[in-house]
Amino acid sequence: MRVYHSGSLAVQDRVGVRDLAERVGRSVAPGIRPVAAAFLEAQPMLVLGAAAPDGRVWAGLLTGLPGFARAAGPHTLSVAGGLPDGDPLAGAVTAAGTPVGTLALDPRTRRRLRLNGTARPSARGLTVATGRVFANCPKYLQQRELLGRAEDSRPGPVRYGPALTPAQAALVRAADTFFLTTTGPGGVDTGHRGGLPGFVEVVSPAELRWADYPGNAMFLTLGNLEEDGRAGLLFLDWDTGTTLRLSGLAHAEYGPEGRAVRFRLDAVAETPDASPLRWSAPVPSPSNPPLRRA
């Protein structure tokens, strides 16, 4: 199993962490270990990212009762329900072999699990044949408690647009968390970014940027962006369940004050009440750096 491709290796060399990345890479497994299976089955949400038939990359949110996403064997993730009609990714998982990146994140325990592979439709919803499975450290992950489910909540129609509205820009500026899907020679990867509210800067209605904080030294995201600039972002309103999803192109910038990522969006998809889950106010991660311009 090859953990890194040329893009990730180039970034590791540029930052000077190749040796550390090699050690961290040994934690990546091709299958779902028992501890990972138990974690997956306890989660009420799963982030899934892929490229749509038109080539745009999106990240989306799937939810259900615990057990809706579960291991159906050491090399298979089974997800109940699948993607709703009208979803930007609804046409992506229509045949076997669609590259996807998934992220199971538990704000209650500040734990997360990344599972990348290939998806296909199933009678239950969809299944993912695993390629790479690994846990992440809790850095920059805000802690939240699950207050409950709005059982009468139903997703509203997806609202598409070419740029952020003022209300959508305000949601981005207030965010302490977002999810990021990228694609490259090694497949699709979905990760998490977090920080104090304001860590994502809205440069214009069609452009964002954020500081790239030190992480696990793997550089899977920046490595993908070295090879293929397509990216999809998912912002979640933790109070109302509304999701804001952005698709566009991103690239890393390197300067004396650190790394930053600049993202130019060309499509917006907002879904009111996309999630029935309702979460508490966050307890900020102790790792969150002070705000600075990206």
Rank of each mutant, 00 (worst) to 15 (best):
T63M: 07
R293Y: 03
G131N: 01
N116C: 02
L265C: 07
A252T: 07
A274F: 02
Q168W: 06
R56D: 14
G81Y: 06
V188K: 07
T177Y: 05
G156S: 01
L233K: 09
R120S: 10
W210A: 11
A174K: 11
W238L: 15
V202A: 04
Y4R: 15
R14N: 01
F263A: 09
R23G: 06
Y254V: 14
A294K: 01
L77I: 05
D266N: 12
V128F: 01
T76L: 13
T63P: 01
D237R: 10
S247P: 05
Q143D: 09
R173Q: 13
A95T: 13
V93M: 09
L65K: 11
L46K: 07
G55R: 03
P99S: 02
F134C: 01
Q43Y: 09
G229P: 14
V93A: 12
T182C: 10
L62S: 14
A52M: 08
L115H: 00
H251R: 14
G184H: 00
E22C: 07
E270G: 00
Q143T: 13
G255F: 15
Y254N: 11
P197V: 05
T94V: 15
P74H: 12
Y254Q: 11
G25H: 02
L20R: 13
R159V: 04
R110A: 12
R245K: 12
R2Y: 12
L77Y: 00
L103Y: 08
P185C: 06
L234R: 11
G232Y: 04
F263Q: 09
R262S: 15
P276K: 09
Y140P: 03
D19H: 00
V3P: 10
A29Q: 14
R111D: 06
T183M: 05
P121M: 10
G156R: 01
V188D: 08
P121F: 12
P276S: 14
A269P: 01
T242Y: 09
G7Y: 04
V202D: 09
L208Y: 08
G125A: 03
V15S: 04
L265E: 05
G97K: 07
L220W: 08
L46I: 13
A260K: 10
R209M: 10
G186L: 08
G184R: 05
I32F: 11
F219M: 08
A95G: 07
L9D: 10
D87E: 05
L40A: 15
L48S: 08
I32N: 08
V3I: 15
L113R: 14
W210K: 03
N216E: 01
V158Y: 05
G148H: 12
Q43C: 14
A69M: 15
L246N: 00
G7D: 05
S280T: 03
G148R: 13
R144Q: 03
A267M: 00
A252D: 07
R14A: 06
P284F: 14
W238F: 15
D239W: 06
A123K: 10
D228Q: 12
L147A: 07
L46C: 12
L83T: 12
G7C: 09
R56W: 08
D228I: 08
A59N: 11
M1P: 11
V188F: 07
T190S: 07
V79G: 04
V203L: 14
R33L: 11
A71F: 02
E227I: 05
T98C: 10
N116R: 00
